[in-house]
Amino acid sequence: MDNILDRLDSIEKHILKEIADIEKTPIGAFNIRENGKAIAKNVTANIDIIPKEDKPGIDIIIKPNTKNESVHIPVVLTQSGLKDLVYNDFYIGENSDVIIVAGCGIHNSSCETSEHDGIHSFHLGKNAKVKYIEKHYGEGSKEGKRILNPQTYIYQEEGSSFEMESIQIEGVTSTIRETTAKLAKDTNLIITERIMTHNDQTAKTVFNVELNGENSRVHVASRSIAKDNSYQEFISDVIGNTKCFGHVECDAIIMDNAKVTSVPKIVANNIDASLVHEAVIGKIAGEQVVKLMTLGLTEKEAEEQIINGFLK
């Protein structure tokens, strides 16, 4: 197979690298979407990708017992003024163990608004295991807004586990990220989120998790840094309807004139539901900066180390 990415220009290649760490044609199944159209696709014996007929998007069907395979579905937006809406539905067969890498990068050098709204659903069959990585990135020299509003729906059948890593650390003007999950018996959901906002950017995160099956577990760990005049909001709502375990950790570092709101909500509808929410908002701890300075870093280098480590 020749390298499909050869057809992309350097901006597009750079964005693909940022969001999906793709420099060559990825191995395994993939679907690359650029400016509202699929430009490259590959399926494997176990993973099928079918374009939707009634709306933009694809169905990704992973056969039962598919192991050690991956699906990449990056989205690149370089055409300014475009509002791209896409529905991607994943059906992950029983006992599968796969990695799914999504992500969206916007390059907007105009004054118009570019927007991508990715609506993803994941249907995990019994004992399926998924690692899902989603990166959001924006760049551009002018005033044009770069907006990303992803929605993620996770439906976990008995014994399945879903690990989601969601990262947005640069260049997105405004984002509302909504994640909804429903967990059956003996399931495990782990969500790790990293966000950094600059200038006048806003980022809102909403997690709704329903623990419906016995021994279902969720762990949400969100770390964010709000700089300049940016605004962040973190809302989480975990409902325990049975014997279950939920842990939400939200840690925010606030700098300059930024503002951060954290709204924790945990609801126990059963005596055996064990739910914890921890939320911390504060500036970079002075003693951390001092410690690193005693090791020879300048104040600025110390802050950078602390921020980079925190978002790692």
């Binding site: 770390r223 840690d251 701890a285 003693e287 951390q288 001092v290 410690k291 690193l292 090791l295 020879g296 870093l297 180390q305 602390i306 980079n308 480590g309 925190f310 978002l311 790692k312």
Partner: peptide, 18 residues
């Protein structure tokens, strides 16, 4: 000693060593 969320023991030893 100061705690650091995100920095590992190895990170700190490297920083200390320069």
């Amino acid at each position: 000693p100061v705690r650091f969320k995100g920095l590992t023991v190895r990170d700190l030893i490297n920083i200390a060593a320069g």
